[in-house]
């Protein structure tokens, strides 16, 4: 590893965005399941809202890969 700081940065990026995604999905998912219990046809819309925060960790992944590419 040429630059341990870059590797640590990548790890922090993944951890941070992972936690952020989990937190956001927890909030949305709970509400979605509640709404679906009343109206099952909301599944489609619910799933969309539920998975939207996943984009956060995908961005995290892109940034982490960029950082690691710098290291290599």
């Amino acid at each position: 590893m040429a630059d341990p700081m870059a590797a640590i940065s990548a790890a922090i990026t993944m951890a941070g965005t992972g936690i952020a995604t989990a937190w956001a999905e927890k909030v949305v998912g709970g509400a979605t399941v509640g709404a679906m219990a009343e109206k099952p046809e909301l599944f489609g819309r619910g799933l969309i809202l539920m998975v939207l925060p996943e984009t956060i960790i995908v961005f995290g992944l892109v940034v982490a890969l960029q950082l690691l590419a710098k290291v290599a």
Binding site: E54, T55, V58, F59, L61, V62
Partner: peptide
């Protein structure tokens, strides 16, 4: 742009 990046999954 975010949508496009989202495909990196």
């Amino acid at each position: 742009l975010a949508n496009v990046m989202s495909y990196t999954r």
